[in-house]
């Protein structure tokens, strides 16, 4: 017997008619937010990937690889300041055109509900790994007011986590436009508001995209300095 759920797709407003298996039904995985057509456009990161940052490596030319890690990670790890700071980044999806549109709608247009699309995936990651603290990358107050919510925090909350805001921004978000050299040598971007809470803890940072890895590494750096044991990160897309 099949059970059909009739809901409207979050993105195209089309009807969602999907078969839910009995197993899925009892495990309460029966909630779908996208129609099949839209979901197909999401591209999971599969196959060979950078063991450090999740960058898909299958199509990457050899000169951008260094054994199990990508060349970018190799450069980061080469510098003493950054070595081992971010232990690992887990990304779920390829940052393709569809994902770019989805993220833009989510964070710039402010379509909060879209965070639900990734809730099950994020929960999955947390079932496989354990962390003491879930920490979203913060926005500056100015940005937060503009957008009405912090997209990283929304992702964590909708996945049923209890994120703690122990980071705050010293500099604005504008650094995205700077060159790699400038970014690496930027004075601190973040500060830890409550260092005691971090001591000896394993931390999972949350953000929407991993692009250059600079934001997450800067956050990881101050956390480690405040005494965190290990810092990993989770992003929905790998740019």
């Amino acid at each position: 017997m099949d059970i059909y759920e009739k809901n409207r797709c979050f993105l195209c407003q089309g009807n969602i008619k999907r078969e839910i298996s009995w197993v899925g039904f009892f495990l309460n995985q029966g909630e779908f937010y996208l129609c099949e057509k839209c979901e197909k456009k999401l591209e999971k990161i599969r196959g060979e990937k950078c063991s450090l940052c999740s960058r898909p490596m299958e199509k990457l030319p050899a000169k951008f690889k260094k054994e199990a890690i990508c060349y970018d990670c190799y450069l980061w790890e080469k510098e003493e300041k950054w070595r081992g700071v971010l232990e690992k980044n887990i990304s779920l999806y390829v940052y393709n055109e569809f994902m770019a549109e989805l993220i833009a709608r989510f964070k710039y247009r402010g379509d909060y509900v879209l965070a639900k699309i990734f809730a099950a995936d994020i929960k999955g990651v947390l079932q496989r790994n354990e962390f003491d603290l879930i920490v979203p990358i913060p926005l500056s107050n100015e940005r937060l007011f503009e957008r009405g919510f912090n997209q990283a925090e929304a992702l964590a909350r909708e996945a049923g986590m209890h994120p703690v805001s122990i980071l705050s921004r010293i500099h604005s978000e504008k650094q995205a436009k700077k060159s790699r050299q400038e970014r690496i040598h930027l004075p601190e971007v973040f500060s830890v508001t409550n260092p005691i809470q971090v001591k000896e803890k394993t931390v999972l940072l949350i953000d929407d995209i991993y692009t250059t890895g600079s934001t997450l590494r800067h956050a990881a750096y101050v956390l480690k300095k405040a005494g965190a044991k290990r810092v990993q990160s989770l992003t929905i897309a790998r740019g």
Binding site: Y112, V113, L144, F145, F149, N150, A154
Partner: peptide, 11 residues
């Protein structure tokens, strides 16, 4: 109703 949704608003 299906096109309204609540969110924790920073404003």
């Amino acid at each position: 109703l299906s096109l309204f949704s609540p969110f924790p608003c920073a404003r």
